[in-house]
Design a protein around this nucleic acid. Structure first.
Lengths: 208, 208, 208, 208
DNA sequence: TATGAATGAGAGTTCATTCAT
DNA sequence: AATGAATGAACTCTCATTCAT
């Protein structure tokens, strides 16, 4: 998860723009995870990336752009991880895998960056639109799994829409408590709570 | 050791420190609600409060202190409002009143400031400790209502702790979706969802 | 040597201007000795004196004036101490007493303040004139003792003026090394050096 | 996170850091000599150096650092001048050359800056350590000349250590009187006094 | 493509002084 | 005589951005 901090300094390499952009974005991500968004500035990004401030400006129009790009990358990677665990399983297994992937030590960084960035006031319209779409996707994916489970009689659900909203809200709310750290909720506890929620809401006692 | 300036005075209004501090905090809150936390600075606070920058520094040691104070005030007021609606009611009525008070246009500002400040990295240890205590209070209050309802046989609940955690997480998660604005959840929908959650979790069908 | 830091705060007393001025000057001296001249400001002087900033401004036209007054007081006291030890003695005893009074732990504060203030750029013409007169006095006093010793055949000196200049310069130079602290010269060593100087220059071997 | 400004550029001159640092230090020295240390600030240094305030900050971490560097340069140059006149001479000639180099109109600026800075409270530990070493060097150099003179029978001295301390103190004390300007001692008189001191202390009448 | 010295507006903070009370 | 809230210019330092090389 940590980008190596290679800073040759003497033998500076020329990279195609896309490669250099990625290196800079990775450097920015490391800094953001370490010091928080307000602790990141152009000079530090340049130093972390092993290039001069001019190089950073050459490849990006502004620091804002770097941060937005970095957050986008973080979220893409996170969703890719989540989605990867879902494919080709029964709905029950899919939900279990999803919940287990949501809160891990690896994902804490993603959640933290995401929350912090969201409220930092740095997001522009373009970015907001993309994230809204991403969030709708996430919502739809949960809904699809639940609906499939209902269809296959794995789940017994009166209202899949209702359960979806509740599930998504619960995920965000538990994440918040987890990151906030008080009254301390561990990643494991958050996962267990979600598993219980699935059982309670979608798998009622067979004799009822 | 440099010669200082004269003071025109015009129409100086004098206030006791406590009054002036409150005026400055209110000015800061207005700015924070309008422009976000990163859009607030000492000069603007002074202008908004109708005083000179020196006056702000006279009453507060730092801008950070103003922001922390402002957020504290916001939260205190919000919790006071919530708590006011709870007293002297049956548990069922108390929960209903609480939910209706949680998401209103008035409270949006509180939620927004609260989230933004939380992630801004401006909070110090002292502040964090106070907020953790406040959050624990909130948790305890919900738990008390639910437990009282169970004791009075208004609610039927297997595990009050479980329900409390779920309720609190749901509140935060719905608030997040509401403020985030995508996929747009209105305050009314959030309230309705919570009301349904109470019915589902605490008031099962009587014949069961 | 330390002014007590009485700060009643509740029961503030009214003092005649001269008394209040002295209290403020003493407070300023304590601060100057403790933190150096650049570490002293109007607010701190007021706090140390147990009065409000306004009171300081009421009694003094400027901070500069307080500092000048404070240094003047310091020097007056120092010279009074030096002079006290000289009266009614033989020239030899007078010089000995003088040298012993020059460098003591008590006088370090006086020297330090004096040097620091001298170079701080705060001295105005009025102050400079008074200090020049004071310095001429000091010079004359040394000269008088030496001349008296020569007249009384206690000292054998070819040129009293010459010896006076050398003695005065030596005093200042040793003080500088002492305060500077490197290569460490103690107060005792400085005194001994001056005593040897007196013997060398004014009391040659009787058989020569 | 605020939008920055454009740069007019006009006639920007670019220098390697080391060159620019020296130019800034020279500018600071000019100001210090003219207005005293307390009259120097970052803005003025920038203006004097013909650069923007930002450029000053780019090359130095703080104003303090500039002042310390400036004083160091001053002292280095002064000692270099003194030392230059000493080499390859007899001890007698060396001392004469040294004394003549000590007090000249050129060196007044060095003495003044040195004294002023010493008491300004701006010096840090690092600086103090370096200056202590420099002062020890100076002491050692005087001692070496005197000892060489004694060995070569040019000087007749009972105690070279004693004479060294006295010589160094005399130099500082005379400098103080010279710069202080009251009771006015000229550079020429100071030099003459030191020459007489050398004759008195190290070159007694041949018949003794 | 990459550099890094240069920019300058603006940030937070300090502080001697004023003046209504 | 004493207060202390208020002032505002001036301070040092930051930093995203520019541009000649």
């Amino acid at each position: 998860m940590k980008t190596p901090r290679a800073v040759p300094a003497e033998q500076r390499v020329r990279h195609p723009t896309e490669v250099r952009r990625q290196l800079i974005v990775r450097a920015a991500l490391d800094l953001m995870a370490e010091r928080g968004i307000s602790g990141v500035n152009a000079r530090e990004i340049a130093k972390q990336a092993g290039v001069s401030p001019g190089t950073v400006s050459y490849h990006f129009a502004s620091v804002r752009e770097i941060l937005a790009e970095a957050i986008t990358v973080t979220i893409e990677e996170y969703y890719a991880t989540l989605t990867a665990g879902i494919q080709q399983r029964t709905p029950t297994e899919a939900l279990r895998a999803l919940i287990d992937a949501l809160f891990t030590d690896d994902t804490e960084r993603h959640w933290r960056l995401w929350f912090e960035y969201w409220w930092s006031g740095n997001s522009d319209e373009d970015f907001a639109a993309r994230q809204a779409a991403r969030y709708a996707d996430w919502h739809a994916q949960i809904h699809a799994i639940i609906a499939a489970g209902c269809d296959a009689d794995e789940f017994s659900c009166a209202d899949p829409d209702e359960v979806t909203v509740r599930f998504v809200a619960l995920v965000d709310g538990l994440a918040l408590q987890w990151l906030r750290g008080a009254p301390s909720l561990t990643a494991e506890q958050a996962r267990e709570h979600l598993h219980r929620f699935v059982v309670d809401s979608l798998m009622p006692a067979p004799n009822s």
